[in-house]
Structure formats: structure tokens, C-alpha cells
Design a protein around this nucleic acid. Sequence first.
DNA 1: CGTTGTGAAATGATTCACAGCT
DNA 2: AGCTGTGAATCATTTCACAACG
Lengths: 219, 219
Amino acid sequence: MTSRSKIPRPTVKRLSLYLRDLESRREQEQQTISSQQLGDALGLTDAQVRKDLAYFGQFGHPGIGYHVQELIAELRKIFGTDRKWSAAVVGAGNIGRAVMAYPRFRHKGFEIVAVFDNNPGVIGQVISGHRVRPMDDLPALVGARDIKIGILAVPAETAQAVADALIDAGVLGILNFAPVRLDVRDAVSITSVDFSVALEQLAFQVSLGLTGSLDEQEG
Amino acid sequence: MTSRSKIPRPTVKRLSLYLRDLESRREQEQQTISSQQLGDALGLTDAQVRKDLAYFGQFGHPGIGYHVQELIAELRKIFGTDRKWSAAVVGAGNIGRAVMAYPRFRHKGFEIVAVFDNNPGVIGQVISGHRVRPMDDLPALVGARDIKIGILAVPAETAQAVADALIDAGVLGILNFAPVRLDVRDAVSITSVDFSVALEQLAFQVSLGLTGSLDEQEG
DNA sequence: CGTTGTGAAATGATTCACAGCT
DNA sequence: AGCTGTGAATCATTTCACAACG
């Protein structure tokens, strides 16, 4: 383990954008890329790109730029996406279904190996190739199928209880789609995706007449 | 227009979290709240909460705190959520369906008034009460139904083309679910929701053994 | 040359700490 | 007393600018 100085949070958030862009360039057979090019594509400065990458190692070649293929491999190592994570979807409603049908999950190194719901009308159904199981089966299956990630697609009211169940069962991370802040007693990693917060951001930007994206520099 | 100093981007992102928390407190009949209480619930310091709110006006009452009801009203004004926005969903696949079924949209002041897709097998179907229309109808309907917001739920490959169509038709904002950066020539506001980026964030945090959320301070 | 990696400077955001109001 | 609003201080992130390298 190379002793690396603390990584800024914004850097972590940009890393996956780099990877996404690089993967599409590789498909188009692009061999190398400069920090300038990568920055332009993402609305960042060249210095920012270089500094972000430099937190993790020296991947560039002076006078040349970065080898696309090589940098993709490095980023995947950083993300831990070079290994596979087993995941469980909890909640087989609309969001749960959209998640199960999302083709990129597998590509990003996640495999959905179980689906849970507590609605008797849904239990037993097969959705996107997965049989929906009752919540009661959760603790046993997390262990049996080596589930590391819980995808929380239940209503806000039950989200905390389900999160607790997932943590007790031993998952390491939770992807939360419910519009609440979960209290996870620092037991797991959490990332949230919140439609209504996103909509409100948008409404706010529109009211103010702001253009472009709040996530970017170019404002 | 009150002359207000520039608002930090992180503040904008927290504003909707405040509103969400306040709304749930009002349901529980809580009358007032201190910056300390609100901060604790969201993992922020009291000073941060006060400073964020102070960018928009003086809503607090020394010795008392903030009146929940009053602050909700102020935040809604700030968000422009006290008016209604007409929205169109483009893409009636899994994500589009989840969006249409999401009950909070209406509550947040958005009304879905049209749904578009270019798949002949889907056109004409009624989903969540909306008849799916061909993409060709988009330009006319955006004008006719006063559509201000486009919700982009199409695959990455077609996202840019659809965004261009929405902009040409005259929308003011786009909520983008496609995993690409859209080039919008600064014509509209953009907010993105990206599942695969979220998953990668999570994978990264888990690999590093980080706990809690990257969006928060408590780290 | 062109391009990286990186200290140093500049900008931006958070926290501190306290005057002032109720 | 309890709590807000806010300048000043601290901390974090970005940008600048340039030596070093292929």
C-alpha cells in the first residue's frame, strides 16, 4: 500500500466520470489522451485532471499524455471494480425494477444475486430473471450468497428499518434510493440517489435562470 | 430583487435536504427548530445551517430558532416550488416508468403532462395514466402544453440528440438520467442522476473501508 | 516540442466565536 | 438564558506556472 495523502472528496466524485469518458474513447479506438482533452470533455481544467489522477499514482507520460487502456485499468483498480461484488435489491417496486433492468450494473462489477420484498402480491414473482423473496429470508441469504451491497429501493418510511436489517446481516455498503438520511452508526458505506432532491435542484436552477450544471466549474 | 451575494454551490445542494427534514417535522407537529437540531439531523454543524439560510434572508428568531412552517414556506419560495412546472418524460423504458410512478414529483410542484418514446411497440400505450407519443410530436407539444422541464430517460447513445430536441423546443431545464455529460451550449439548466456513477462511488468507498456518506462532513 | 506532476498562490467553503436580539 | 446572524480565522480545493521528462 503506497502511502497516499488524503484524497479530496470532489476528486472521488470525478473519478468515475473520467472512467466513463475513457471507456467510450476506447470503444472508438483512441489510444492516448491529454489532461486537456479529458478536461474539455468533462468541463474541467487540465490541471484539475492531472491533480486528481496524481493522487493515485503517476499514470501519465510527459509529451504524450495518458494511454487510454492503461488509465482505464488503473482506475478500475482504484475503484475495486476489477473484482465482483454480489448485491441484493430490496424493494421490487418501480425503482427496484429499473435497477434490475439496468444493464450497466453487471458491467461495473456488480451482480444482483437476490431480490427481496415484503408485499405478498410480489413475492414469488420473477422479475428480470430474479425470483422475489420475502424479507425474512434476507439474513440467511446475505451470508449464503456472500452479498456485500444492499440496494435500497423501498419507500422512505421503511428505509431505516431495512437498512438496519442489511447492516445486521453484514453488508458492507448500501445504495440508497429512499429520500431520507439513513443513520448507519458508521457501520457501512452509503451512497444516495435521490430523485426529489435532484428535481428540486433543477427547479432552483431554472428559477434563478442558471445554465449548465451545478456539478461543474464552468459557471 | 434583493441584492444577494453569491451562493456557494454546496449550499444549494443542502437546501433541499433542509426542506425535506422540515416537512417531516411539520407532519409531526413540531413548531420550531434550532440550527443545532436541524444540523444534527443532517450531519452538519449549527453554524453551517445558519449560514446557508442567511444567504437568502433572515428567517430565524433569536432565542427561539426557526418556525418550521415559516421556514418551509421560505424555502419553497427559494426553490420556485410554490409555482407549478409542466414536465415531459422522454423515454418510456424502466427509468421513465419509475419516474412516472414516483409520487413525490407532483408534490414537489412538477406535473408530467406528456410522455414520448420512439419505439413503435410502446407508442400509444398508456403508462401511469399517460399515453406515450412519438418523438415527432415533441416540438409541437412542448409549446402547446407549456412544458418547461424535460426528463431524459433514454439510453446514453440517444441522450444528446434528445437533449438538443428538447432545447430547440424551448424547455428551460433537463433532468438527465443518461450516463453521459450533455453539451447544452449554456441554453438550459441541467441536473443529472447517474446510477452507475453512484454505484462506482459506493464500490470505491467500500474498497477503502470508508464508513458513512461522502456527501457529509462527519468523516 | 508537448505534456506531465507538483509546489505555491488564489479562491472557495466551513468553522469559530461573539455581539445583539428576544 | 437561548439562539440567530455574521465578520474573522481556518481549512479545503482549484488554479497557476514552471521544472523536468520523453
